[in-house]
Design a protein around this nucleic acid. Structure first.
Lengths: 223, 223
DNA sequence: ATTACTACGAATCGAGTAA
DNA sequence: TTTACTCGATTCGTAGTAA
């Protein structure tokens, strides 16, 4: 029953704009039809359907009916509102969904390099636990990754030892399942769909996750 | 062309969630179909329609297409977001639309009574210009008036002179066409669709309005 | 692989109208 | 008035398929 017809959501929105989440709304099917720019018959049918699916309750007076949005209807509206908030917050933060995968164990090596460590502490204001937690994001969300790459992030500069060069990386503050963390984006490698998280905590323990588990994360764009 | 089909709005929303307002989104009609839980053919037709109506622009790569939401599409999403904000802000403020009407000139008499004046100044923190500006709200919005009456507002108490009794009224801070004001609700008279505004300014002059002109107003519910 | 056309079945709309 | 039913008209969705 969550394959809600989109036009019914519009009707619910219209009722909410008239105060239907707080009070009953006194409205005839013809009045509603005018608001929705449709026919009285269609408006009446919309109300029947919303009622049958428990998104609204109705009482019939002598003339017009009194309509109130149910908790189920309010939840649906809230859910929709949240999505719009996500859309318009996307200049501040981006949400990703994915599941835990194992890296090649390189994470531990890199996060223990003193040249990176000092920069992490200076610029991210925490000392990362050794290793990274890798999250394969849903493939469709590679598009959000492209948005993410438009932003500057926190630059960890490349540096050289006598043996080798350690490349620069971009970091963003983040949360994974609501735990404080950051992501590390290699400046090259534009086609990966893996996010590497570092954190002051041992994330696998703190989050109690293992390979394949689903996680949600938020990346903060302001540096 | 503003009789946008509601399912097209959902498609636009989905593209926006993938970052389509900030960047191009790389998505095949099949992928989009999966997101929308519909068929590839339907998704393809949705995109054709959105393109034809200039809500999106598309570039075709060798494989998938690149989609970006146009300014027109962004405007539509913003408009929708604004409506949801209004819905969920309704515990703080309520918006009304209406047009100016003439009162019976009583407003001037009442707003000049010293017993009201001192209370207005104490409780509303401004000295009202003599008279009220009356706004007949759209009939359908009587439902929001019912929501408004659930709130306590700012009580102006009744008082007596040796000649007569002046009844109590409820006030709410307000704005009318963005100008600071307040509304005065008689405690009785539950079936009026007229809002009476008082303001430190002479509203008819300040707003440059006359009878029949449309105005929008915001009523603030927190006392 | 991907887009999108055609054709037709399914769902939705709204005029007429009863209650 | 008002709601909401029936039923023909219109719109929408999707299988098959071409490009």
């Amino acid at each position: 029953m969550n394959n809600m017809k989109s036009y019914l959501l519009q009707v619910l929105k219209e009722l909410a704009l008239l105060g239907g989440m707080h009070q009953f709304v006194e409205i005839s099917s013809l009045e509603l039809a005018e608001q929705l720019q449709t026919s009285q018959q269609t408006a009446s049918r919309y109300l029947l359907t919303l009622d049958a699916q428990n998104y609204i309750t109705r009482q019939f007076g002598v003339k017009k009916q009194l309509i109130q949005i149910t908790d189920k209807g309010i939840d649906l509206l809230k859910q929709e509102y949240t999505l719009f908030q996500q859309i318009f917050e996307m200049m501040h933060k981006i949400h990703f969904h994915g599941h835990i995968v194992s890296g090649l164990g390189e994470g531990t090596y890199y996060t223990e390099q003193p040249g990176y460590l000092t920069q992490f502490q200076e610029k991210l204001h925490f000392r990362p636990h050794p290793g990274t937690l890798n999250v394969e994001i849903e493939y469709i969300e590679r598009n959000k990754l492209r948005v993410l790459r438009q932003y500057d992030g926190i630059l960890i500069q490349e540096y050289k030892t006598k043996n080798r060069t350690f490349g620069g990386v971009i970091c963003f503050h983040a949360e994974i399942n609501s735990i404080k963390a950051a992501i590390v984006l290699p400046t090259r490698t534009h086609h990966s769909t893996i996010l590497e998280f570092i954190s002051p905590y041992h994330l696998r323990e703190k989050l109690k996750v293992e390979d394949g588990d689903e996680v949600t994360s938020t990346i903060y764009l302001q540096s």
